[in-house]
Simulated scan of single mutants.
Amino acid sequence: MQFVHKTALEHGLTVPQYSLLMTIAPNKEITQKKLGEIVQIPKSTLSQSVDGLVQAGWIERDPVPDNRREMQLILSEKGKILYETIAQKKGTIHQVIDSVLNTLTEIQFEEFQSTLLHIADSLEKETSTKGNTQND
Rank of each mutant, 00 (worst) to 15 (best):
K130P: 02
P16G: 09
G57V: 07
Q88W: 09
D51M: 03
E60P: 03
T133R: 13
D136T: 12
E37F: 05
P16I: 13
K89R: 15
V50W: 05
T133M: 14
E111M: 10
D66R: 14
I81Y: 13
H118M: 14
D62P: 03
E29D: 12
Q55P: 00
H94C: 11
T115V: 03
E106L: 05
Y83C: 07
Q48H: 13
K33L: 06
S76L: 04
H11E: 04
H5N: 10
A120S: 03
T45P: 00
P42M: 01
I81T: 12
I81P: 00
Q108L: 03
W58N: 09
T85C: 06
L21Q: 05
G91D: 11
Q32K: 12
E37N: 13
K78C: 07
Q113W: 06
H5E: 15
Q88H: 12
I24S: 06
D66C: 10
F112Q: 09
H94W: 08
N27A: 15
E84G: 05
S47E: 04
L53V: 03
R68N: 00
A25H: 09
Q134E: 09
H94V: 13
P42F: 01
E10T: 07
V39A: 02
M22H: 04
L116R: 07
I41A: 01
N102E: 14
Q134F: 14
T85E: 14
V39Y: 00
S122C: 07
V96D: 10
T133I: 14
P63Q: 08
S114F: 04
Q134T: 13
Q40H: 01
T23N: 11
R68W: 03
L20Y: 05
K90L: 04
P26L: 09
L75E: 00
P16K: 04
I119Y: 15
Y18N: 02
D51C: 01
L116M: 13
E124K: 11
K43W: 02
P63W: 11
N27K: 15
T92L: 02
P26K: 12
L116V: 12
L9G: 01
I24Q: 02
S122F: 08
M1G: 13
H5Q: 14
K130N: 12
E126N: 12
Q95L: 06
H94Q: 14
R61W: 00
S47G: 03
D136W: 10
E84K: 13
G91M: 10
S47C: 08
F109D: 12
V64M: 11
D121M: 08
E70N: 09
A56G: 06
L73M: 09
N102D: 15
V54T: 08
K130I: 02
L35S: 00
T105E: 06
H11T: 07
T92Y: 03
Q17T: 03
L104C: 15
K43H: 06
P26D: 02
L13T: 07
V39K: 02
M71I: 00
P42Y: 09
V64C: 07
E110V: 08
L53R: 01
R61E: 08
Q113F: 07
G12R: 09
Q72M: 14
L123D: 06
L13W: 00
L82K: 02
K33C: 01
L13S: 04
Q55G: 04
T7W: 05
P16F: 07
V50H: 03
Y83N: 13
S44L: 09
Q40R: 12
I93A: 07
L116P: 04
